[in-house]
Simulated assay, not measured.
Amino acid sequence: MASAVALPDAYRDRPIRVYSRNPDSRGRFVDRARTEFGLDVSAARSAEEAVRAAEVVVLATSSATPVVEAEWIRPGAYVAPLGPKQVGRAEFDPSIARTAAFVVSDSPAQVGAYDPPNVLVGSGLEGDLVHLGAVLAGDAQPPEGTRVFFSVGLAGTEAWLLDAVTR
């Protein structure tokens, strides 16, 4: 967790559930988030417990396999996978994007440029990705339903988009 976190006030009083496979890391993260940022954070016993009913799901792992299942995601949630997104090494299951109402990326063109390929390549979603620039310009509005921000490398855009799509 970075030491300079700018959390919009609208989220300060909302409960946050975190999960890590390592109970010690999970506990340290919870303690630090409570102490340094005054957040209402609790440790979940499983990834499913952390995700079920959450309005916002942030996947920030180094996992080579998906850590959440699409059916765990609450309809209308905002989902931001930050970790690995390559075929054969991805924290994110493409079925989450397939069931979403809106999938936006900071660079849809870059999705197809990776080697090994991005997990969305061949999923049928490549042509449906909305460019973040269209959202910023007001040319694309997220419809009701689950929204996924599929970042491919522009650090910091996740927090901005979270604020924009939840207003």
Rank of each mutant, 00 (worst) to 15 (best):
28 R>G: 02
83 G>P: 14
115 D>M: 06
75 P>G: 07
151 S>Q: 10
15 P>I: 00
60 A>D: 04
122 G>S: 13
54 A>D: 01
117 P>S: 11
17 R>P: 02
131 H>P: 15
18 V>S: 03
1 M>F: 13
152 V>E: 07
135 V>Q: 10
52 R>D: 04
46 S>P: 13
79 V>S: 08
34 R>V: 13
144 E>R: 14
97 A>C: 08
131 H>F: 03
16 I>R: 04
57 V>G: 08
101 A>W: 07
26 R>M: 09
151 S>T: 11
47 A>H: 05
152 V>L: 11
120 L>K: 09
8 P>R: 12
51 V>K: 06
148 V>W: 08
64 A>C: 06
46 S>F: 10
24 D>W: 01
131 H>G: 14
116 P>W: 04
64 A>P: 06
9 D>R: 11
95 S>F: 00
79 V>I: 15
28 R>M: 04
112 G>W: 01
26 R>D: 03
157 T>G: 02
139 D>H: 11
148 V>Y: 10
166 T>D: 03
98 R>L: 08
102 F>T: 03
116 P>C: 06
68 V>W: 07
6 A>K: 13
152 V>S: 11
21 R>W: 00
72 W>S: 00
17 R>E: 02
19 Y>T: 06
134 A>Q: 14
55 E>G: 11
163 D>F: 03
8 P>K: 06
127 G>C: 02
53 A>L: 05
59 L>A: 04
21 R>K: 07
98 R>Y: 00
103 V>M: 04
150 F>L: 12
101 A>N: 04
58 V>Q: 02
99 T>D: 12
117 P>N: 08
105 S>W: 01
69 E>P: 01
152 V>W: 09
28 R>P: 00
64 A>V: 12
